[in-house]
Amino acid sequence: MTQHPLISVKNLNVHIDGHHILKGVNINIPDKSVTSIIGPSGCGKTTLLKTFNRLLDDTANVKVSGSVLVSDEDIYAPDAEVTHIRKKMGLLSQRPYPLPMSIYDNVAYGPRIHGVRKKSELDAIVEKQLKDTSLWSEVKDRLHGPAAKLSIGQQQRLCLARGLAVEPEIILGDESTSALDPISTHKIEDLFVRLKEKYTIVLVTHILRQARRISDYIIFVYMGEIIEFGPTEEVLLNPREELTKQYVKGFIS
């Protein structure tokens, strides 16, 4: 790993409702690349992803210990400002959740919250982000129509545009294509590959082929522990650990 890590996790432990979900996680996620977190259902993939932008804060009975450094800043430090941290990361959830407003307002939502008021500026942001997510040509005539009327694949790209509009450094994807048809999936995957020039992308996925297609690095999580971390080809084709080997071959799922 030659690149400087953008996210650096040190001895992270997470307990939810008394269950030990993440056990002593140490990981360095490299800058400007796609990293996939793979592992069987319920192994803690999504929890790990959510610790990166402190989305676990609102869950009841959560205990987090250890540290997560993002650009050398500890996001679990007592004086860390949550909104500032979250602004640095765009989140793309399993299913698209457009906000109950127009397409335009969805993209402008983040910038508005962070103080952009001028219409010309907002117009420019909306157009740029919709173009970056290849939605512009599809929606430019109905920017002020409700976002809920878009197809599900379009909605997911809109959610991505919405996340990019706050100029994050990191994009977090939580099985972001699992609700989509193959064509929409393909479009989102293409976007990820294109976006990694400018952003660091961390994805949770349970589709090994997808991980192989688009990611540079792979983290294999099993029962709350990091089993293996390395470049995609190495982890998938030539795993060092026995557990990884079994998972990749499909013996455990």
Binding site: H84, M89, G90, S93, Q94, H114, C159, G163
Partner: peptide
């Protein structure tokens, strides 16, 4: 998830 979407935008 809808609330998370808004929260994750800061």
């Amino acid at each position: 998830e809808l609330k998370d979407a808004s929260l994750s935008l800061g």
